[in-house]
């Protein structure tokens, strides 16, 4: 299958990344090549092999239910590019 500019736009939308119109073509070309290569996976006969999410044989790692954290707002919010009165700010999110 070929990756065209429309496909790139669709994925970019899902990933929330903007692209300049003039970058799109080159990007789509590289991407087509890469996907073409990756698609060899779909041809591999994996039989009844199960997907492997974790390599470690580790399970049931939990923390106890204890509240251990102190309020550290002023320190943390310093990292924000924009803030006001202890709140993070975004352009208005209006429910349609």
């Amino acid at each position: 299958m070929g990756i065209d500019i429309e496909t790139i736009k669709k994925i970019a939308n899902l990933a929330a990344i903007s692209f300049e119109e003039n970058e799109l073509e080159g990007f789509a070309r590289d991407f087509d090549l890469i996907i073409g290569y990756m698609e060899q996976l779909s041809k591999i006969d994996t039989g009844d092999i199960k997907p492997m999410e974790h390599v470690l044989p580790v399970q049931n790692v939990f923390r106890e239910d204890e509240d251990t954290n102190q309020n550290n707002r002023d320190e943390l919010i310093k990292c924000a590019p924009v803030s006001e009165n202890g709140c993070y700010i975004v352009p208005s999110v209006v429910e349609s």
């Binding site: 239910d65 509240d67 309020n71 009165n85 202890g86």
Partner: peptide, 22 residues
């Protein structure tokens, strides 16, 4: 629960904004 699901912050309604965060 006393604390949040993935960290030790207080699980408690209300309070000053962003004061129960890490």
């Amino acid at each position: 629960t006393k604390s949040k699901i993935f960290c030790g912050c207080k699980n408690e309604f209300g309070g000053e904004p962003n004061t129960k965060c890490c």
